[in-house]
């Protein structure tokens, strides 16, 4: 779907993107992650052809990015905004027509979406009369109305209350099921794990990690487990098949965090522990994307 090759973008005095390459496969929900100032917005603007890279190329469905692709992309910027004094219906039609829809088609689709998201009564309202959450909803509709193949969402959930965030999330998933590829920029990791198939992590203008979420998480597994048991507190003398990382005591149970010795499986641990105490739970500790994110970002010092 989208192939980004060796993009370099420099602004006077600082580098926004240095040699960034990415592959976004068709039908994916792709997470573009990174702390503020990592270069996410610069990259998104290049994909939207708002700015051009200093060097490097972007291919859209195998074709070098050009003006004809503009109508196939829907973009929800992080900095939201619509014309405050313009009526919402007219404004949506205007934005849709800029993306190549005819007036009639725009009205037809708007009716569908306004009904679906319960916005019918807003049609003649001016944007400034709507609440912030309502404006966001309207802008989301404007982003997807022309049924783009690639939907670029920059922090889509900021500004939504939990109820509406859920509604928007469901809509994003449905659009994805219908075939839209979604490029999703955020620094909120919990939504990444919920939604994204693949991610790329940008930091200080460079890509420092990318791949499928599952693969990345697997590669960060390090045989660490949590075990909860009840009964006498266990004492370990070094003969056990793991090393103790952490020990905690709750009101009615003990919790230990252990790292397995090489070649030992979780079953071996259970076999070792079962005769000694009563096990409530054994669970592998898989690092969250948040932890991986923080680890990776802190690992790489500034390169400029």
């Amino acid at each position: 779907m989208l192939s980004i090759r060796n993009i370099v973008k420099q602004y006077a005095g600082h580098t926004a993107l240095s040699d960034v390459s990415l592959e976004v496969e068709s039908g994916q929900i792709f997470g573009l992650l990174g702390p503020n100032g990592a270069g996410k917005t610069s990259l998104i603007r290049i994909i939207n052809q708002i700015t051009a890279p200093d060097s490097g190329e972007v291919y859209f469905d195998g074709v070098k990015l050009n003006q004809s692709h503009i109508d196939r992309i829907g973009y929800l910027p992080e900095e939201r905004g619509l014309y405050k004094k313009m009526e919402i219906g007219e404004q949506m039609i205007y934005l849709a027509r800029l993306k190549g829809l005819s007036r009639d088609e725009a009205i037809k689709r708007l009716k569908y979406w306004f009904e679906k998201l319960e916005m019918q009564s807003w049609w003649n309202k001016k944007i400034e009369e709507l609440s912030k959450g309502m404006q966001q909803k309207a802008q989301f509709v404007a982003t997807i109305l022309h049924e783009p193949d690639l939907i670029i969402l920059d922090e889509p959930f900021s500004g939504f209350d939990p109820v509406n965030a859920e509604i928007i999330k469901d809509e994003i998933l449905e659009l994805n099921r219908k075939g839209a590829t979604i490029l999703f920029s955020t620094h909120r990791m919990e939504s990444v794990e919920e939604l994204c198939n693949s991610i790329a992590l940008l930091n200080k203008s460079q890509k420092i990690l990318d791949g499928k979420v599952r693969d990345i998480k697997n590669s960060y597994r390090n045989a660490t487990y949590l075990v909860e048991y009840t009964g006498e507190k266990l004492l370990f003398n070094g003969s056990q098949p793991f090393t103790l990382v952490e020990e905690k005591q709750t009101d009615d149970a003990n919790v230990i965090k252990i790292k397995l010795t090489d070649g030992v499986s979780s079953n071996d641990v259970l076999q070792y522990l079962i005769p000694k105490t009563s096990i409530n739970m054994l669970q592998e500790v898989i690092p969250t994307m948040n932890e991986i994110f923080i680890e990776k970002v802190n690992q790489k010092p500034a390169l400029s």
């Binding site: 939207n48 052809q49 708002i50 910027p77 900095e79 939201r80 905004g81 014309y83 934005l95 802008q139």
Partner: peptide, 18 residues
Amino acid sequence: IEEKTSRVVEVIVSSVKP
């Protein structure tokens, strides 16, 4: 200035050239 401060410009320039 209105387009810039309301940020609508970012949406518009993703459809047309500045």
